[in-house]
């Protein structure tokens, strides 16, 4: 089969190149860097980021943005912990309630965006403050999660050999990624998000269900944010109202580095997966380096983001010239 170099694939290819480059550099510079364990840790440590990034990819491709995700993670985590710790609710029920509330939260934001034609930036900014405030209303302090069922979930995992081990949280991340890829490429919902993000006017005139798709996108993202909250609370064994402040920006960075256009209409879930791994890889790299402050992560991400935005700008201009 002939290899098509579609112009829209260039950002994705650039993402893969960057990932390989960093991975190669780390492997050459540090022993132990090139190991299954380090690689699997990328999935474990970034599971909660990744789960939201998948949802955010849909949001951004549809031409929107969601700033509320970090706060929803904190709210979901602290709410689940509170229910289990103070009221003795069974963990499965507590988590389910949180997921339902997360989806509802997203749906309400989606409805506001669609029916009142409010800008997503503002609506989700409101959502961000609201969810953060509610998280503090639930508890001012971190609540530990100790429950036999929770411990069982945390301890559950598939041994991969080479001292590597795939825990439940990483499995959730991988599962969500696969579901995301399926939704994006093989369902009308997924294709409609592209259409809306590329040209909403055309999508309306083509008779696509614009409103329903938009609301569904935010509902899906709200659900995934809550799921990320569950993953985060499993990862830290606690619920903490101040968790994940500013996470939304990391997530957006991962999506953009993953090759999704911030203006909408173009991008891939698979690209986002690599974008998330790149963020994790940079962190790992700096940990291995040992002497640099961890804030260097932010600097590198900033530079990388800048390069990718320039690339996108260049590509969209080149596209317009044709």
């Amino acid at each position: 089969m002939k290899l098509h170099l579609n112009q829209k694939n260039i950002p994705l290819l650039a993402t893969i190149a960057v990932f390989l480059l960093i991975y190669l550099a780390g492997s050459v510079l540090y022993s132990n860097f090139f190991s299954l364990r380090v690689f699997v840790n990328l999935f474990i440590d970034n599971a909660f980021v990744g789960v939201i990034a998948i949802g955010m990819t849909f949001v951004i491709i549809s031409g929107g943005i969601d700033l509320s995700v970090g706060s929803v993670v904190a709210l979901a985590g602290v709410l689940a912990a509170k229910m289990m710790h103070d009221f003795g609710v069974h963990p499965i029920l507590a988590f389910s309630i949180c997921l339902g509330l997360g989806a509802m939260f997203g749906m309400i934001m989606g409805c506001l965006i669609h029916f009142f034609e409010l800008p997503p930036f503002l609506v989700t900014l409101v959502g961000m403050f609201l969810a953060r405030g509610l998280a503090f209303l639930v508890s001012l302090n971190a609540i530990p999660i100790k429950h036999p069922v929770v411990n069982a979930i945390i301890d559950f995992g598939i041994p991969l050999g080479f001292r590597a081990w795939l825990p439940a949280t990483a499995m959730i991340f991988i599962a969500v990624t696969l579901v995301g890829i399926y939704l994006q490429h093989y369902t009308r919902f997924g294709r409609n998000t592209y259409a809306i993000g590329s040209s909403e006017q055309s999508a309306i005139l083509m008779g696509l269900p614009v409103g329903r798709t938009k609301i569904l996108v935010y509902t899906f993202n709200g659900f995934l944010s809550a799921l990320a909250g569950v993953v985060y609370s499993l990862y830290t064994s606690s619920g903490y109202p101040l968790a994940c402040v500013g996470l939304e920006l990391d997530v957006i960075a991962a999506v953009v580095i993953g090759g999704t256009l911030l203006s909408g209409g173009s991008g891939y879930v698979a690209g986002t997966l690599i974008g998330v791994l790149i963020l994790g890889l940079i962190q790992t790299f700096i940990t291995f380096q040992g002497t640099l402050s961890s804030w260097w992560t932010k600097i590198v991400i900033g530079v990388l983001l800048f390069v990718f935005i320039l690339l996108q700008r260049y590509l969209s201009k080149a596209g317009a010239r044709r």
Binding site: K8, N192, A195, G197, S198, S202, A203, L205, M206, G265
Partner: peptide, 29 residues
């Protein structure tokens, strides 16, 4: 058909022809 063309620029020609009415097989496009 209007003067301004109402298609989705980022999607492929084929998809623009069928979007909204994609043929499905086993629940997938």
């Amino acid at each position: 058909l209007y003067q301004e063309i109402n298609l989705i620029p980022a999607l492929s020609v084929a998809e623009n022809i069928y979007i909204g009415r994609e043929p499905m097989r086993f629940g997938r496009i």
